[in-house]
């Protein structure tokens, strides 16, 4: 994977240790990573640049991850960015997006990972999403 083509991932989590962990994993696999410690900080990042993927925590002070997700999906520029929710709110097998966001106009996320994550599955999912994106845009990332 060449540096200039590396897909950029935005990690949004108020736990600095989680951000460092995910950054390390993704960097090891050739992704370019940006972090934000709150929904407000993430919105500021998103208004300046458009990442190819977003990893989003849910339980954050002030504005929750679901609120930010809803705002992203309502924004024409950000709507198509795949979002992986990484949280401890529910077990992966029980996670039902509609329990948290009932508005059917808001599509479910690209994936849900329960903390602590299964690293191999996480990388596999990210790789697969990146491949889908590159196929869609005709760009070559991997």
């Amino acid at each position: 994977m060449s540096a200039q083509h590396a897909p950029r991932v935005l990690i949004i989590d108020d736990e600095p240790d989680v951000s460092v962990y995910l950054t390390t994993i993704l960097s090891q696999h050739g992704y370019e990573v940006e972090t934000a410690s709150s929904s407000e900080a993430a919105w500021a990042c998103l208004s300046q640049s458009t990442p190819q993927l977003v990893c989003l925590d849910i339980m954050m002070p002030r504005e929750s991850g679901f609120s930010l997700y809803t705002r992203m999906k309502a924004d024409a520029r950000l709507r198509s960015i795949p979002v992986l929710i990484i949280s401890g709110v529910a077990q992966a097998k029980d996670f039902d997006f509609r329990e948290y966001v009932s508005d059917k106009a808001i599509p479910p996320p690209a994936g849900y990972f329960e903390k602590p994550i299964d690293v191999a599955l996480f990388i596999e999912t990210i790789t697969s999403l990146a491949a889908e994106l590159s196929a869609r845009t005709g760009d070559v990332h991997a």
């Binding site: 736990e15 240790d17 962990y21 995910l22 090891q28 401890g88 903390k115 602590p116 690293v119």
Partner: peptide
């Protein structure tokens, strides 16, 4: 409590991963 424990486990997993690396 489960949510908090998961966050801590995630931190511990993260520390272990980075030390290993």
């Amino acid at each position: 409590l489960a949510h908090s424990v998961k966050n801590i486990l995630m931190g511990l997993e993260g520390g272990k991963y980075i030390v290993g690396l």
